[in-house]
Every structure is written in structure tokens, then in C-alpha cells.
């Protein structure tokens, strides 16, 4: 990765988008951890029906979230110091990352791997709808911003 750190610098839209998507995904994972696990205590730390593969993927995702947050911020700082940040693409990437992780969490973690549910002892489909609906809304904002960023680049 070192070689890319030294280039002097036209804006790098692709890299700006990817780095901010990484930050967005890691941020959303952190928000999930802090708000739903810790503050609201809706999710369970460990759901006894969690299968082994779910436990491993959960551990991997959790660690990747922490490392992703650190990596995302240092890559962002690197873009800034090289004046290579494309702000419009960065914003689009952030929303794509936020929505992408939220959707991944809602579909893969909650439904496919059945790690834990959003909340226990409630009418779950409503919560799932709100969760995944919010994810799609964030993704939609990300897509609109990305399209506008590309147009802005061409003009």
C-alpha cells in the first residue's frame, strides 16, 4: 500500500469513495454495537441458538469493524494530506457504506446466520422492515450522491 501513498496528486474519486465507504460501514457497525447492544440492550450479547459458523462470522465482523475504523481514518488522513480527496465521492461513499452495512446486518446476520434478532418479545417483522427500510434509504441517498458526483466530475 506504500506506493500509493507517495503519488502527487490529482483527486482520486474511486479511492475517496472506497475509503469513505469503509468508514461508513465500520461506523454503522459501531453504532449498532453501542446503541442496540449496549444502550438499548435489545440485541443479546449471545443468543443461545447461534450456530458455530455464526459465532465465527460475528467475531470476524466485529474485529474487522474495529480495524476498519482505524484503517479508514488513516487512509482518509492520507488522502487529505496528498490533496487527493474528492469530497462529493467521499460523501457518496459514506452513505453507501452506512446503508450497505445496515442491509448486510439486517439480512445476513439477523436472518441468514440468525446471530440474534433486533429485539426479543416483540412483533419482529415490523422491526425488520424498519431496519432494512432504513438501510435501503441510506443506500438510495448514497447512489444519488454517487451519480451526482460522477456528473460533477464530467462537467
Amino acid at each position: 500500500m506504500n506506493e500509493s501513498a507517495g503519488h502527487a496528486s490529482a483527486p482520486e474519486p474511486g479511492r475517496s469513495l472506497a475509503v469513505c465507504a469503509l468508514i461508513g460501514a465500520a461506523l454503522m457497525a459501531a453504532v449498532d454495537e453501542i446503541v442496540f447492544h449496549q444502550i438499548l440492550a435489545w440485541h443479546h450479547f449471545f443468543d443461545r441458538s447461534t450456530p458455530a459458523v455464526g459465532l465465527v462470522s460475528d467475531g470476524l465482523l466485529h474485529t474487522a469493524e474495529l480495524l476498519g475504523l482505524v484503517a479508514g481514518f488513516v487512509l482518509y488522513a492520507d488522502l487529505r494530506r496528498r490533496h487527493a480527496l474528492a469530497p462529493a465521492h467521499a460523501r457518496a461513499g459514506l452513505f453507501l457504506g452506512l446503508g450497505g452495512f445496515q442491509l448486510f446486518d439486517g439480512i445476513i446476520d439477523h436472518k441468514v446466520l440468525r446471530l440474534h434478532q433486533i429485539r426479543y418479545g416483540v412483533d419482529l417483522p415490523v422491526y425488520d422492515l424498519a431496519w432494512n427500510g432504513a438501510a435501503l434509504a441510506l443506500l438510495a441517498v448514497g447512489v444519488v450522491l454517487a451519480v451526482r458526483a460522477r456528473r460533477g466530475l464530467r462537467s
Binding site: H62, T63, L67
Partner: peptide
């Protein structure tokens, strides 16, 4: 670090 963190969390 990623692998070790995963093993620790699991």
C-alpha cells in the same frame, strides 16, 4: 491481527 482478534472474540 484480524485473525487473532476474531479468535479472541469467539
Amino acid at each position: 491481527l484480524l485473525a487473532a482478534g476474531t479468535a479472541h472474540a469467539v
